[in-house]
C-alpha cells in the first residue's frame, strides 16, 4: 500500500458516516477509504458515534403487529442475501469506482476537454458532481479558484500545485480561499477523481466558455 500523506478531514468523515453528504462526495470518500486504512479506521469510529447515538436515544413505539409484519417480510425471500456479487477488479480504480464506471479503467468513457485533458462524469445525484480526470504527464490544469468545495483524489501518477505534491491515495481539499494550477508530474498521465459542489472559477476567457458547454 502507498504512503498516503494527505487524508480526509474529520468533518467529511463524519458527514460520510452520518449520511449527510452528496452522493458525489460519498463516491470520492469511499474510494479514498478503499486505499487508506487510517481513514477507514477513523470512519469506523464515526460509525460508532452513530451507533451510540442510535442506542441511547428515546425510542418511538412501533405499530401493533410490526414484529409479525417483519417476520412475514423475512419469510418472503429467505436466501436472497447470499447472492453477493463481486465487483470487477482493477489495478487503478478501487471497487466503488468500477461500480460507478461499470468496469475498469478501459471502460471509462473519456471525452476531451481541451489541452490534452480528458474527463468522464460519473452518474450521481446532481447536487454535486464527481468526475475522473486524465491529465497528460507534464501538463497543467488551467489556473482556477473554487466557488464551493473541491476534493481531488489521485489514482495514478502525481500532481503538484502551489500547496504540495499529491500522489496515489492523496486527497486535496480546496475551498473558496485556494486558487491553484495543478500540474501533472512527468513520467505518466495523472488520473484523478474530483468532486465539486459548485462550478470552478477559471481565470482565462477560453476555459470559461468551455465550462458552460462542458458543465465543469
Amino acid at each position: 500500500m502507498e504512503t498516503i500523506r494527505h487524508h480526509l478531514p474529520d468533518d467529511l468523515l463524519m458527514g460520510y458516516a452520518a449520511g449527510s453528504l452528496a452522493e458525489a462526495f460519498n463516491v470520492l470518500i469511499a474510494t479514498h477509504l478503499s486505499l487508506c486504512d487510517e481513514c477507514r479506521a477513523r470512519a469506523g469510529s464515526f460509525d460508532a458515534v452513530g451507533g451510540a447515538i442510535l442506542d441511547t436515544s428515546p425510542p418511538r413505539a412501533m405499530a401493533p403487529g410490526a414484529l409479525q409484519a417483519t417476520l412475514a417480510r423475512i419469510d418472503e425471500d429467505p436466501e436472497v442475501s447470499r447472492a453477493t456479487h463481486q465487483p470487477e477488479r482493477d489495478g487503478t480504480l478501487p471497487a466503488p469506482l468500477t461500480s460507478y464506471v461499470g468496469g475498469g479503467l478501459d471502460s471509462v468513457p473519456w471525452r476531451s476537454i481541451g489541452g490534452g485533458v480528458r474527463d468522464a462524469l460519473l452518474p450521481t445525484s446532481n447536487e454535486a458532481r464527481v468526475r475522473l480526470l486524465r491529465i497528460p504527464a507534464g501538463m497543467a490544469v488551467p489556473d482556477h479558484g473554487h466557488r464551493g468545495m473541491e476534493l481531488t483524489l489521485v489514482l495514478q501518477g502525481a500532481f503538484r500545485d502551489e500547496t504540495d505534491r499529491f500522489a496515489r491515495g492523496d486527497v486535496e481539499v480546496a475551498d473558496e480561499e485556494l486558487e491553484h494550477t495543478p500540474v501533472a508530474e512527468e513520467g505518466e498521465d495523472c488520473i484523478c477523481l474530483a468532486a465539486t459542489d459548485a462550478p470552478l472559477r477559471f481565470k482565462g476567457m477560453i476555459p470559461r466558455i468551455a465550462q458552460s458547454f462542458l458543465r465543469i
Partner: peptide, 25 residues
C-alpha cells in the same frame, strides 16, 4: 448498535434521498 445504525443510514439514503450509497472495497 453500530452495525444496525449503518443499515438504517443506508436505507435512509436509499429510500428518502433515492441515492446509492457507495461503500469502500
Amino acid at each position: 448498535a453500530t452495525w444496525i445504525f449503518t443499515i438504517a443510514r443506508n436505507r435512509r439514503i436509499d429510500t428518502l434521498r433515492k441515492q446509492r450509497r457507495p461503500e469502500p472495497e
